[in-house]
Design a protein around this nucleic acid. Structure first.
Lengths: 112, 112
DNA sequence: GCGGTATGCCTCAGTGTCTAAGGTATTATT
DNA sequence: AATAATACCTTAGACACTGAGGCATACCGC
């Protein structure tokens, strides 16, 4: 709605970057972690995730590598956070804080 | 992204309903209040506001009345919160809290 | 007198994010 | 034999917001 209008929509970006800050993960795993860590709140669809991961990698925020798993036929594509991605994470985190704070100013609004 | 995927996009709705909880206001005034109360953070565009007000009124959340102002040529369209709008406000407020809480769970994530 | 800024309402094409559904392939369960 | 789970992928459509436009009046500076 203004300078960072995309902020709130792009919250998934922030969450993905945050997850990868802890450890490298593959897509399917991210969906589960988001669901579990948010106590079932975030049910991210694959259609929202995969294109986003590709974009983040193309932007140089993430790197990926394929890892075969013996007992499974389907390889996993692990993503990890690049230095540029860490900066992006910090930026997005600050934006989120700013937004949440501003909204609280509106909601609480002690004065009339 | 899930049950209330529209939540975060529809944050403007929440803010408008909140503003009108305090007192009836007209569109142009809402834009200024949002800007001032958020310390300049929210710069809502008219293109986002007016259609939304029409929709909220059509949904029965708001009521409007035109008020002429002597020293000004342009009449003001004052909106006020209906009973149904108060319920909607409560609902949206709870949704917002749930979302912000869930996101914090992801961001803080004390465990690995 | 003329452009810029402010007030105050309005609309609409375009952008970007997400949803919902589809696809491929294998294994385990019912 | 069908369903769910794992694991990757794509794409049409919905939806909220941006940015620009329009209309009308008043004031300010040059």
């Amino acid at each position: 709605m203004a300078h960072d209008a995309q902020l709130v929509k792009g919250t998934v970006r922030l969450m993905i970057l945050r997850l990868l800050e802890s450890e490298p993960m593959y897509g399917y795993q991210m969906i589960q972690h988001l669901r579990d860590r948010s106590e079932g709140y975030f049910q991210l669809g694959e259609g929202a995730l995969y294109p986003l991961l590709h974009e983040l990698e193309a932007s140089g925020f993430l790197a990926s590598r394929w890892v075969a798993v013996e007992e499974r036929p389907q390889s996993r594509k692990y993503y990890s956070l690049e230095a540029k991605g860490e900066q992006e994470l910090a930026r997005r985190r600050d934006e989120w804080k700013g937004f949440a704070r501003a909204l609280d100013l509106i909601l609480e609004a002690s004065r009339a």
